[in-house]
Amino acid sequence: MDEITKIMIDEFEKRPDGSWACVRNSDITTKSQKVIRVTPGMTFKKGRMLWGIDVADTLDKISSN
Rank of each mutant, 00 (worst) to 15 (best):
D54P: 12
T39D: 09
T58F: 05
D27Q: 05
K45W: 04
I36H: 14
K61M: 03
K61F: 06
E13W: 10
F44L: 01
I9N: 02
V35N: 02
T39G: 15
T43P: 03
S26R: 00
G41A: 02
E11A: 10
S64G: 13
D54G: 07
T43M: 09
I9Q: 02
K61Q: 13
S19I: 03
N65Y: 03
A21E: 15
E13V: 06
I9K: 02
C22D: 09
F12A: 10
D10G: 07
T29A: 11
I4K: 00
S26P: 08
C22H: 07
S63P: 14
I7W: 00
E13I: 05
V35P: 03
D27F: 11
E11N: 13
I28M: 00
G52D: 11
S64P: 13
G52Q: 13
F44W: 01
R37D: 03
S64K: 15
R24H: 09
R37W: 12
N25M: 08
S32P: 09
N25W: 14
A21F: 12
T30Q: 05
S63H: 09
K46Y: 04
K6H: 14
G18F: 01
K14P: 11
V35K: 09
R24K: 04
D57A: 15
K46H: 09
I7N: 01
S26V: 10
V23T: 14
D57I: 05
S64Q: 10
T58A: 11
N65A: 15
D10I: 10
K34Q: 06
G18E: 01
D2R: 04
K45P: 15
I9H: 02
D54L: 14
W20D: 00
R15N: 06
R48H: 13
A56Q: 07
I4D: 00
W20L: 00
D27I: 13
C22V: 04
D54R: 05
Q33N: 13
T39C: 15
K46D: 01
C22S: 14
D57P: 08
S32W: 15
D10Y: 12
D54Y: 09
Q33W: 15
R24L: 12
I9V: 14
N65D: 03
D10T: 03
C22Y: 03
M8Y: 08
R15C: 11
T30F: 06
K61W: 10
R48D: 14
T43N: 07
R24D: 09
V38P: 06
D17K: 05
A56W: 04
I4Y: 01
E13T: 10
W20F: 08
T29I: 13
N65I: 15
I28L: 04
I7L: 07
V55E: 01
L50R: 11
S63L: 06
D10C: 06
T30G: 04
P40R: 01
R24V: 06
P40A: 08
Q33V: 14
I53D: 00
T58W: 08
E3S: 13
I28T: 02
L59R: 08
L50M: 12
K34L: 02
L59G: 01
E11M: 08
V55L: 08
K6L: 01
T5Y: 06
V55Y: 01
V55P: 03
S26I: 04
D27Y: 15
W51S: 15
